[in-house]
Amino acid sequence: MKKRVLRNKLLTGVIFLLLVSMVLSGCGGQSGSQPAEPASGQSSAPAEAPSNYPARAMEFVAPAGAGGGWDLTIRTVGRILQETGIVEVPMPVTNREGGGGGVNLAYMQEKAGSDDYIAVYSPPLLLINLNGSTQLSYENTTPLARLITDYQAFMVGQNSQYSNIHEVMEALKADPKSVKVAGTSAAGSMDHIAFLIIAKEAGVENLSEIDYIAFQDGSSASQLMGGHVDLLSTSLSQVSGLIESGDLVVLAQTAPHRVGTGVMGEIPTCIEEGINATFENWRGLFGPPEMPGYAVDYWSEVLAEMVTTDEWQAALVSNGWDDAYLDAAGFKSFLEIANESYKMILDEIGMLAE
Rank of each mutant, 00 (worst) to 15 (best):
S21M: 14
F331D: 04
E301R: 13
N339H: 07
E340G: 15
T134F: 06
S31C: 05
V263Y: 11
A39R: 13
L144T: 04
S51L: 13
Q253H: 06
L224W: 01
G227E: 07
A221K: 13
G218Q: 12
N206S: 10
Y138L: 05
D347K: 14
E348A: 12
G227K: 01
N129P: 00
Q238C: 06
T94D: 01
L207Q: 01
S114A: 12
A328L: 03
V61Q: 01
S137M: 06
V181R: 00
E170C: 05
W299L: 08
P176V: 13
A57D: 13
T149S: 00
S245F: 09
N339E: 04
I86S: 09
A45P: 10
E340F: 05
L19I: 10
I86R: 10
S333Y: 02
M155V: 15
G102R: 14
M351N: 00
W321S: 05
G293V: 09
P46A: 08
A39I: 06
E48R: 13
G218N: 08
T141Q: 02
D116E: 05
E59M: 15
S222M: 04
E59I: 12
P50W: 09
R4N: 09
W70R: 05
N104A: 04
V263P: 14
S33F: 14
I275Q: 07
V239E: 04
L18Y: 03
N140L: 05
A329L: 14
V87K: 11
E59H: 15
G226Q: 11
D347F: 00
I193L: 08
M344A: 14
A324I: 07
R7W: 12
E311G: 08
A221Y: 03
L316G: 03
Y53E: 14
S40P: 04
T261V: 07
S341R: 15
G203Q: 08
K111N: 11
A153L: 15
A329C: 09
P256Y: 02
V181S: 05
A64W: 12
S160M: 11
F154C: 05
W282K: 01
A187T: 11
V307L: 07
I80L: 06
E170W: 13
